[in-house]
Design a binder for these strands. Structure first.
Lengths: 173, 173
DNA sequence: CATTATAGTGAGTAATCACTTACAAATTTA
DNA sequence: TAAATTTGTAAGTGATTACTCACTATAATG
């Protein structure tokens, strides 16, 4: 991975996240990255290939994070860590997650292996905690995380009071 | 509002919602609507004007709905109606709400008067119900609605068990 | 050192973009 | 019914799009 190749990935992520994939032209990316436009196609074949390379990068990071949550055996502790997720997004990953949520609406949710494993580990946690409908509870947590992550990524929020409200509803406080 | 004008609005909403604003060309809209491309510009000035006309249409509908919720005086009942919102989206409004959530990520949330009133009415409901942090609770409800609406609009869900989980957390069941 | 593969450029390409213009048909108004 | 206004079309416009191609500079390899 050369420096210019990395520049292309960085610039494309920034522009895709802030202005949208379709309204970001390859020439704009090239200018932003300080490379010739042709280089984008040399390294990534086409615009779609560039997008996929970016998504692959981000997936590796997020999978590592999901994995660390799933390793926690105690269900209560695991639920707690899960509910913390939207509040501990590193700010240098904001661009990726903005892109992630945008694409959700334009290309459908990108389902991958790690996500299904995570979903299942949540369901199991609720089972162990004796909830009456673990599968629906897991779905609710997912919706909750998505909603809160949206607030975090798009608005100024005060994490502490919001987190307190959430934890109280799951009797974790 | 002529028939062709209405056709343009319908086609544009459908295409904007399914393929995104930026990747929907005016010529594609014209073909889909069965009109000449020039007519779009005659009636809506430019592509942005067409988008705004669509958003204005949708805002009127949603404002009416928010208004009906806010009229409910009993705080418990009002909270209950609010939490029902994502489950009662009429299916012929799905396109609008998909567009709405897409634009949230590309142009920032579209804040309008009705939305702020609604937000405040939620806060007041939590105040009356004696919650310790009404403002954070209102923010949480908003995030929850957004997250659940996303599930409803993008995936197949079973509303009843999910709604049950939510109501139980607010002791409304 | 010579050869080969890779990294990188800049000037193209046809197609498509949002939008305009000149003009005709239909409708409204006086 | 005559004039004026609105609705509608078809064929353009220059700019921009994703992408290609012929080429050079750099680095790796034997």
């Amino acid at each position: 991975m050369t420096e210019k190749q990395q520049n292309i990935l960085n610039s494309a992520l920034r522009l895709f996240a802030t202005e949208g994939v379709d309204s970001t032209s390859t020439s704009k990316i090239a200018k932003h990255a300080g490379v010739s436009e042709g280089l984008i196609f040399r390294h990534f074949t086409n615009k779609e290939g560039l997008l996929q390379a970016i998504l692959e990068n981000g997936r590796e990071k997020s999978d590592a994070y999901f994995h660390s949550v799933m390793q926690v055996k105690d269900p209560k502790e695991r639920l707690l860590m899960t509910l913390h997720l939207p509040f501990v997004i590193p700010s240098d990953e904001y661009d990726f997650w903005r892109l992630f949520y945008t694409l959700k609406w334009q290309r459908g949710p990108m389902e991958h292996e790690g996500m299904n494993l995570f979903r299942n580990s949540m369901k199991e946690a609720f089972e162990e905690l004796g909830y009456t409908n673990p599968s629906a509870e897991a779905q609710l947590v997912e919706a909750l995380i998505d909603g809160v992550a949206t607030e975090v990524l798009l608005k100024e929020i005060y994490p502490k009071p919001l987190l307190d409200c959430i934890l109280e509803k799951y009797k974790l406080k």
